[in-house]
Nucleic acid binder design. Structure first.
Length: 116
DNA sequence: CGTCTGACGCACG
DNA sequence: GCGTGCGCCAGAC
């Protein structure tokens, strides 16, 4: 059914937002992990694209807790200020060096554990 | 309707 | 171990 497909598309954004908002304080996750948890393991690029739209979303979404698979802050240029992403992370106790999260492996939060 | 783009990820050399 | 290239899906033009 067409409506169902349309609903699915809408849920793509919804799920990305929902998962992102569930990221625990002081934890981080990856675009790929989010994509996988919403059923589209290869749609990691879409996750970043969806997060870019969070700027226009009134709801607060901690997009700064989402980085790429190696823990690098590749999306910092999309924040109001390039340093904002790092500042937000560090304010939560996440150390960042050279745009890279320190001890990323230990701070990684797996979205699939949340049973969306 | 073809083509390009993107806050990624992976295979390959 | 690093650089390059390609696939991925959805939207813009």
């Amino acid at each position: 059914m067409k409506n169902l497909q349309k609903l699915h598309k809408e849920n793509f954004f919804e799920r990305v937002y929902t998962i992102t908002k569930k990221i625990p304080h002081g934890k981080v996750t990856t675009y790929g992990a989010i994509a996988k948890s919403i059923g589209s393991a290869n749609a990691s690029r879409m996750v970043g694209w969806a997060l870019n739209n969070t700027s226009f979303n009134e709801t607060y979404i901690p997009a700064h807790r989402v980085v790429n698979r190696i823990g690098m802050l590749t999306g910092k240029h999309h924040f109001r200020h390039e340093t904002l992403m790092q500042e937000l992370l560090e304010s939560e106790g996440v150390k960042v060096t050279n745009d890279k999260i320190v001890d990323f492996k230990n701070l990684f939060w797996d979205p699939s554990k949340e049973l969306i």
